[in-house]
């Protein structure tokens, strides 16, 4: 009765190895990844009046607010750059990073229902968030480029530098950094639930430590090291110097930041891969 002529093609065992990320299965489920991206996109704009226009309006309105508060009222320098471009670039990059982080940190809260009922490689979820927000970033970046071209033709003091070649790397860094930290928080929050509540608060604080609405040049030298501890600074500054011609770039800083991001990202993925195996029994 127990003769098994076919070789078992799968085996369910108590736990997976630390580095077993089920990449083969991940690939099989790639359609699901695309579908999640599609759903994130469709669902967020159903039953809204302006629909995807929000994507464009949000950074524009935020930039307008920054111009009033930070540029006019507080008179924080933008390094001689047009404030609109300066803020807009910071805002859309910050959005990309913080949305990735928040979405990944909340995975076990938002997906408990599905995780409880059906199996698919769980790594699909954070990657789908990463891609959804990448698309949003793309749209917002197009908006930025439109404004950028207007300023360029109007003769504003902006110019492209060779650093523009590093933009894809900087963009990937920002996303991976958000995902890595988000996944670490998600994994820890399976044990200590209140962590998730700290995300919004933490992000708000973290924004002040990141040069989103101020240039590095205004920071007194004795505090500059704090800024350099922050890999996100490298991303934003690379964008600024590449597209606007003013910002901070040094290879050592950029590479150290990239390495930090990579390590955090790998740790995040490993932690998530571990946490995901027990989460159904815990939450």
């Amino acid at each position: 009765m127990d003769e098994r002529s076919a070789i078992p093609r799968w085996k369910i065992e108590p736990s997976r190895k630390v580095f077993d990320f089920q990449l083969g299965e991940f690939w099989q489920y790639k359609d699901l990844l695309l579908q999640f991206v599609r759903r994130d996109f469709l669902a967020s704009y159903k039953q809204t009046i302006l629909g995807p226009a929000w994507l464009v309006l949000q950074p524009l309105l935020t930039a307008a607010m920054y111009i009033v508060i930070f540029s006019r009222v507080a008179r924080i320098s933008t390094d001689e750059l047009p404030p609109v471009l300066f803020y807009l670039l910071g805002i859309i990059l910050w959005n990309y990073f913080s949305e990735c982080l928040a979405a990944c940190a909340g995975i076990f809260k938002d997906y408990t229902e599905i995780f409880n009922k059906v199996y698919f490689p769980r790594l699909i979820v954070p990657f789908s968030s990463l891609f959804s927000f990448l698309i949003r970033f793309g749209i917002q970046f197009l908006l930025f480029m439109v404004v950028y071209l207007v300023y360029l033709f109007a003769g504003a003091s902006i110019h492209i530098t060779w650093n523009v070649l590093l933009l894809p790397a900087a963009l990937i860094m920002a996303g991976m950094f958000g995902m890595g930290i988000g996944l670490l928080i998600a994994s820890a929050s399976t044990k200590y639930r209140d962590l998730y509540n700290l995300v919004g608060f933490g992000l708000r604080l973290y924004m002040f430590a990141t040069p989103v609405f101020y240039p590095i040049s205004i920071i007194p030298d004795e505090y500059k090291f704090i800024i350099w501890l922050n890999p996100l600074t490298a991303c934003i500054e690379t964008f600024r110097i590449g597209l606007l011609g003013s910002g901070y770039f040094e290879w050592s800083f950029f590479l150290i930041s990239a390495l930090t991001v990579l390590i955090i990202w790998i740790l995040g993925v490993i932690a998530y891969n571990r946490a995901e195996q027990n989460v159904v029994d815990v939450i």
Binding site: P8, W10, K11, I12, E13, P14, S15, F115, N116, K117, V118, Y119, Q277, N278, V280, D281
Partner: peptide, 10 residues
Amino acid sequence: VTLPTKGSVS
């Protein structure tokens, strides 16, 4: 959806 504590299914 959940993993066994001991034993296996193949």
